[in-house]
Design a protein around this nucleic acid. Structure first.
Lengths: 161, 161
DNA sequence: TCCTTAAGGATATTAAATATCCGTAATTAC
DNA sequence: GTAATTACGGATATTTAATATCCTTAAGGA
């Protein structure tokens, strides 16, 4: 079980968009170049963010994407779900119904006990992701990344904005 | 991103093995029949449990599987990892290294900040799964399942043990 | 001796991930 | 107005993982 690589791409792109000069857009081409990933395929991930209402887009030269909300209002979970979907990672196929001892008409009052445990773990995962925003990430990145690289990247992006 | 259906099967089978008369073995054939899943493929999941040391097996008629430890000593996480592997659900491909502004020799002192957040969520998921044992599950199942079905299933299994 | 079983390797089938390509419509720069 | 640039969506490969099935081997029990 692996998350799609588009999740990683979307998170990195969102981090860049969070650092954009106010009101400016950045095109898929620049984001693809910056991260060294195929432009056409990255585009699908960005379209996912757009459909989820996390980013706004505009056409034409100087077009591209920008965040639709303040970085503090966008969580990792928002981005992960925009790309991966909101479905649970554990699918219960109700194999308990295949029990040959089971009477024909029996209706279950609750979801399968095993599924409940798996879903609770899923919830813990989502809660953890919901607890970190792009604003939080920006703080960490600023601490992690060498000042010189941080500055140069900001300039590189600003030139293409 | 979906867990394999073998995870569901392995969990249901483990629950049955947890209720087995002491020392007895139950064969793949019976487990497959009880859950309505293909015997040959279920066998792969059970081999995973065996390799992880969660169950013991024996050959010949009256052979099959039984738990290697008390139900209280086997967690959901043990079973999930036996089937899915212990790898993280988020793979960091280090796309930060593709930044064209990055100096050639730069070494990163920490894992990528984005990966750290994703891995922390992964840990929350695993912690949640580690907190529930087969003994806990047995308690819940006994509450959930109608007494008559519980009894009949126990008998069905005992006959094949 | 014969039947049953787990184990593991080989192979086939199906679905999902990972792309690539192209047409369309909107927007901007000139 | 014209040309360049862009997001968007649909169509279509290509690759990889999931989902099986089949067969052989070796061990255990009747």
């Amino acid at each position: 079980m692996q998350l799609k690589n588009q999740v990683e791409w979307a998170l990195h792109c969102s981090a860049i968009l969070a650092g954009l000069p106010a009101g400016r857009y950045l095109a898929t081409k620049a984001l693809a170049e910056l991260h060294g990933v195929p432009k056409e395929y990255l585009s699908k991930a960005l379209q996912g963010l757009s459909q989820a209402g996390l980013v706004e887009s505009t056409l034409g030269p100087s077009g591209g994407y920008r965040l639709a909300r303040a970085p503090a209002g966008i969580s990792f979970l928002d981005i992960v779900e925009a790309v991966e979907g909101k479905g649970r990672t554990f699918a219960c196929t109700e194999i308990r119904r295949n029990n040959p001892c089971r009477p024909a008409g029996l209706c279950d009052s609750k979801p399968c006990a095993i599924a409940r445990v798996m879903w609770e773990a899923d919830r813990a995962w989502r809660d953890s992701l919901a607890g970190v925003s792009l604003a939080d990430l920006a703080v960490t990145l600023k601490e992690d990344i060498p000042a010189e690289l941080w500055r140069k990247t900001g300039e590189w992006v600003a030139e293409r904005t």
